[in-house]
């Protein structure tokens, strides 16, 4: 996809990101965020989260991948990335990122995106915005 081919109203290609049992551990190692809510199911239960939960920034990384892939694959084109972490993502769920081009002018295109999991209708990312610059 070239910048010029991005059109207002276009749906982006849906991104499916399966979250393996140990995904929070992989992300903890890569990001150095070892908060026990992410890596210790017992601790997660104790603090009322029902188990360990994936890092919000990992879910956001999945959304970034989906949006950047749609917009041509060069991360240098990503100008802004924003979202609210509405509900936690748990291991063994699949994060599904979807979105739509809502605005475009000569050098910027804006995508509104959200993410849900396959378990129920949990919206895990809301108010998502990814803005791209023409490069």
């Amino acid at each position: 996809m070239n910048f010029d081919d991005i059109k207002i109203g276009d749906e982006i290609t849906e991104g499916k990101h399966p979250v393996g049992k140990y995904q929070p551990h992989y992300y903890a190692g890569a990001s150095l965020d070892f908060n026990p809510i992410h890596i210790d199911p017992d601790f997660g239960k104790m603090v009322g989260l029902g188990g360990n939960i994936l890092h919000g920034l990992c879910t956001l990384a999945f959304a970034a991948k989906t949006c950047v892939d749609y917009a041509g694959g060069d991360p240098a084109s990503l100008k802004r990335l924003k979202a609210r972490f509405s509900k936690p993502v748990k291991p063994l769920e699949t994060v599904i990122v979807s979105g739509k081009v809502v605005a475009k002018d000569g050098d910027t295109a804006s995508i509104e995106f959200g993410a849900a999991t396959n378990k129920g209708e949990n919206q895990v990312l809301t108010n998502g915005i990814a803005e791209f610059r023409k490069i």
Binding site: N35, I37, G56, L57, A76, R80, L81, A83, F85
Partner: peptide, 16 residues
């Protein structure tokens, strides 16, 4: 920290 979760994130990128 036991009760803390990430609520929102906003990145503005200027350069890779």
């Amino acid at each position: 920290l036991m009760m803390l979760v990430h609520g929102e994130q906003d990145f503005e990128f200027f350069e890779v």
